[in-house]
Nucleic acid binder design. Structure first.
Lengths: 194, 194
DNA sequence: CGAAAATTTGACATGACTCAACTGGAGTGG
DNA sequence: CCACTCCAGTTGAGTCATGTCAAATTTTCG
């Protein structure tokens, strides 16, 4: 279950009063999801963001041919959601899948929006989080533009060494935008030239 | 030159007091740049963001072989900077080039950070801006993962019809991550199958 | 242990790249 | 006003990275 300590953990170095902490805590919901479970499919409407306490999830896009494209992974202390739907388009675009049994904190965008009004310093906190996330995305875009599949894979395992442990290769491939076969050949190539 | 009206324009629907508007205005600098001018090279240190009043700019990454990769375009009412350097890495990564004679408002990150403290509602404003920008990037990443060069080009001219007027094809190619030759063939193909 | 899932391998296809040459338009200066 | 140059764009021929399809092998896990 959840204790109020989770609020301090999520909002790291934000200095919160007892009242503020209690208010935030009242908006949180504790969720456990099993491996393989899909939190949200493209059919449903998304209203929440999820903070990962433990485990691993991913968001992916499913095209007309049934191919999957992984947009984001989330492990401990990361946030995950279908932000395209949540923040602009309303219509759900992504699936959120649990790829390792996980413990999450769920909060609705509506609650968050209320908290932004009642505890203005949360705006600063999320703005800074967003700046970091924005930069990570710019780097991923640059990486897609400038690098070969092999280089992108090497970057991936270098930048996210902890991911490799419990994320399957076919998920990594779908994140890098290549086929599982190509990834397999790349890995073979790397193993040989060592 | 700049009048205080620019502040209301930049901060759209934020309700500002006279004092707040004056304070913000005191931090802004008016800049004009000519076509071809490079505002910032990878050698220099970036300290500012730029708001485009008129004209067009782009940021691009220059690799060891001298190839250019366009990360972002900015036209009227857009912000542009080397956010990778500004918000996380400090070391400059991108070049900011003016591709059409432009009028800009420049503001240092330092001034912005002061304003965030003195006028907390600006946090909300920028958080919301960032959310939108974040979603645009997620879409671009998805587009890179799921679509062919031809589809990405068609998407580009559909989503940014106003860009095509003054952005050269070779810049569009470098944004899409393809060569000018490939773009030329794609355009030929589209023209023929109409 | 056995079935299902994930990965690897092989043969072949293809989209996009490279290099090199050519075209066409926009200045510019004699 | 023509010749020249520069720059963007186009075209062609050959190559290479990655995809596709099909099958074999290995790993995972109930």
């Amino acid at each position: 279950m959840l204790t109020k300590a989770i609020v301090d953990h999520i909002f790291e170095d934000v200095h919160l009063t007892v009242q503020e902490r209690t208010l935030i805590f009242s908006k949180l919901e504790y969720v456990t999801v099993k491996k393989g479970q899909v939190l949200l499919t493209q059919a449903q409407e998304i209203k929440n963001q999820f903070f990962v306490i433990e485990g691993c999830l991913r968001t992916f896009y499913l095209d007309e041919l049934g191919k999957e494209y992984t947009l984001q992974f989330a492990v401990k202390d990361w946030w995950i959601s279908d932000y395209i739907a949540l923040w602009t388009d309303n219509k759900t675009v992504l699936n959120i899948e649990c790829i390792r049994t996980s413990k999450l904190v769920s909060i609705s965008q509506k609650s968050l929006d209320q908290l932004f009004v009642e505890i203005p310093k949360l705006n600063t906190f999320f703005r800074q989080k967003l700046q970091k996330a924005f930069v990570r995305q710019e780097k991923r875009i640059l990486s897609n533009l400038t690098k070969s599949a092999k280089e992108r894979y090497l970057d991936f395992i270098r930048v996210y060494p902890d991911f490799e442990k419990f994320i399957k290769n076919f998920h990594i491939a779908s994140y890098l935008g290549i086929t599982t076969q190509s990834l397999s050949r790349i890995r073979k190539d790397i193993a040989q030239n060592t």
